[in-house]
Design a protein around this nucleic acid. Structure first.
Lengths: 247, 247
DNA sequence: GATAGTTTAAATGTCAGACATTAATATGTA
DNA sequence: TACATATTAATGTCTGACATTTAAACTATC
């Protein structure tokens, strides 16, 4: 592990990169202990605070974990799908909001990805996942549910659909797409009638998955995508109308 | 922004979380300058190095950028799709290698996601993207190409296919899936005959996209997925055979 | 008065050394 | 043997200082 003394970047950034490269290349393997901060400081010929800044960068990416005490130190962390979810969702959410991604574009991406799961999910969904979907459908039918709670339930429903594919990589990749949409969905006001329509489509999807009918699942997803988009357009134009009237 | 004095976590982790929350919630907007390190240290009642560790954590996630000099400081960074790619690819690559994800699972996820793009790409692919695909097909036909270069070209080809959908969110979500596969693909030795078969399928895909034929694009992708998986199985069983013979 | 050069100030980047806290291990004692 | 107590090695945190960078204020010259 070496750093370039002529680089313009921060020393802590360079050191973090050097260690990161070693991990990705497999030179440092899971659960292996890194040298102590003092040893790293010696090795890279920098001070301990600088080494610490580098280690915190890696910790922020869940690449290492640290332990205090006599046999403590920094250890290469086994990156788990569950931990990686959080980061992906945070990143995706910010990407959408900071780049002013339109509802249509995000919606298109989300449903395209979900449709990719549909045939696999129809073949493999477990009774457990079906039960989750039914439970969420039931929750969504309850009157007096806030819009936020309705959206959250929607996310859980779709997560179950995606997890039904029984492919951890797919689930991971899609978690970001589905959950990142939530803030955008939260902008929509769901009327009783629109909730009813969504619940009906969710029921269609659950029925199709239960019957292991891939084609019907896909068709229902397409319908739901179209309906969601229509709903969003209604909200947007209603808001524009109001904006216009107030001027 | 407040931190919990009774938390067991690192102060720097708590401070990073507090600032991160403020960014996600929109309390800190893009390009807004954070208080100086000294001011943050005062606010959270910690020392400057602790604040710095927190800021480095945020910098590692590209949530902030720092500038030196008189008008310098830490600024909320506009997260761009291009920057987010890198992190996603690194994370996805490590997820696959550290969790011993099988070739089959990764391959299934990859092609399921690519197939989700196919109809959109058939409708929207630009001449530019078609040209990229043709160029990569040509490169892949050249004899004397190393396996690594062949894989790299394969990634470029598929990236063009995905970008053809003209949906930034889709491109972002799929970059990880496609590129993270590369280390797994690199384990395969591509014979002249298997390269020929892959090039033929790539040509089919490019032809179908050029003709804007979604169904044919999808069919060719399915064929390519099946062929890739078969190829990997051949390699794995050949390796097992060799292992057995050597004992 | 405009322009070029110089100084200043404010911020991050880096360092050195110290002390606090944690947790495993070794040690000593009933 | 079992339990309590030191030891020790590591991370976590603090203080204070200096180095470096950069924009802006200032100054001198034309």
């Amino acid at each position: 592990m070496k750093i370039d003394p002529n680089s313009s970047k921060d020393l802590s950034a360079q050191i973090a990169q050097a260690i990161r490269d070693a991990i990705v290349a497999g030179d440092l393997i899971v659960d292996q202990r890194l040298p102590s901060e003092a040893e790293l400081a010696d090795h890279f010929e920098v001070s301990r605070p600088t080494v610490r800044e580098a280690l915190k960068r890696l910790a922020a990416q869940s690449l290492i974990r640290t332990q205090r005490g006599a046999t403590g130190g920094a250890f290469v962390n086994r990156l788990r799908f569950e931990e990686a979810y959080d980061q992906q969702v945070t990143t995706s959410t910010l990407l959408l909001s900071m780049n002013a991604v339109s509802f249509d574009v995000a919606c298109e991406a989300r449903y395209a990805l979900e449709r990719a799961c549909a045939p696999l999910s129809a073949a493999r969904r477990t009774p457990d996942q079906l039960a989750t979907m039914r439970a969420e459908i039931h929750r969504q039918s309850q009157p007096g549910l806030t819009d936020e709670a309705f959206c959250a339930s929607d996310v859980t429903f779709h997560r179950a659909l995606v997890d039904g594919a029984g492919n951890k990589v797919l689930s991971y990749q899609l978690a970001g797409a589905v959950e990142a949409m939530q803030p955008l969905m939260n902008m929509i006001t769901f009327t009783a009638r629109s909730r009813e329509a969504i619940v009906a489509l969710h029921t269609d999807i659950a029925d199709a998955l239960q019957a292991q009918d891939a084609a019907k699942t896909d068709a229902s997803l397409v319908e739901l995508a179209a309906y969601t988009r229509k709903l969003a357009h209604t909200v947007v134009s209603a808001r524009a109308q109001k904006e216009h009237a107030s001027r």
